[in-house]
């Protein structure tokens, strides 16, 4: 297994550059914010895995098409504005959900058979989402989330339906992905509660809550219009 370690790691170009904060012009509830892993979130930690079988399509092609058409596989109530440069390490994508809430993601990692997003402060959950495709007696497309609800408000929202909505969204995405290749398939879902604890030290994350931030942004819109006039 041991190989001589070289100065240039094989995965160097797959990862986003190390940053302290997202660019200031990254969008509402995204610009200037820090990225959050599960340990920076609040609620119980979940590993959610959704899979769909896409026989006859190479995993590399699944991921290539997934990257190129990412937002089109989403349900109609949410919109993903893909980075101009595409799904590449370090790029930021903006999300509008239910036509009012704005947040985003940063592309953390990409390679030929997978890509991952990391969430900024205020996003409904803190953590990573990995999209991958692999061969397991036929090609599988997979979404895996390792996440916690970001703050107490999102935690309550997850308890009262948002978690189920999350499941439905990724199941829809995988059905749409399979349909893109002409396959009608039913996704499978595996939910594992990795940690039932709440991280109360992170309860203050609520000050960055994207739903609250979006509401404030909408409320301030008339003031911005008057200033421009």
């Amino acid at each position: 297994m041991t190989e001589e370690r070289t100065d240039e790691p094989r995965d160097r170009n797959n990862w986003a550059p190390n940053i302290e904060r997202l660019r200031a012009d990254g969008g509402v509830n995204v610009g200037g914010r820090r990225l959050t892993g599960p340990q920076q979130g609040f609620g119980p930690m979940w590993q959610k895995t959704y899979t769909v079988r896409i026989p006859g399509v190479e995993p590399e092609r699944v991921i290539s098409e997934w990257k190129a058409n990412y937002g089109s596989f989403w349900p109609s109530h949410s919109r993903f504005n893909a980075p101009v440069a595409g799904i590449k390490p370090g790029e930021v994508g903006n999300i509008t959900s239910m036509q009012v809430m704005s947040t985003g993601i940063m592309v953390l990692y990409t390679d030929e058979t997978s890509f991952s997003f990391m969430t900024p402060e205020g996003h409904p959950f803190a953590g990573w989402i990995t999209f991958s495709s692999y061969d397991d007696d036929g090609t599988v497309g997979q979404v895996q989330l390792v996440i916690r609800p970001s703050d107490p408000l999102w935690d309550v929202a997850f308890l009262f339906g948002a978690a189920k909505g999350e499941d439905l969204m990724w199941q829809h995405t995988l059905r749409a992905l399979a349909a893109h290749f002409g396959v009608e398939a039913k996704p499978e879902t595996t939910l594992v509660k990795v940690d039932k604890k709440r991280l109360w030290k992170n309860a203050g994350n609520i000050t960055k809550n994207a739903a609250i931030g979006s509401a404030i942004n909408v409320a301030k819109a008339p003031v911005r219009m008057l200033r421009r006039a």
Binding site: D11, N14, Y109
Partner: peptide
């Protein structure tokens, strides 16, 4: 002797944590 790591690997490390 770590030769390569992807984001799926990072997810496993946090689960182990």
């Amino acid at each position: 002797q770590l030769g390569y790591m992807n984001s799926g690997g990072i997810g496993l490390l946090v689960t182990m944590l």
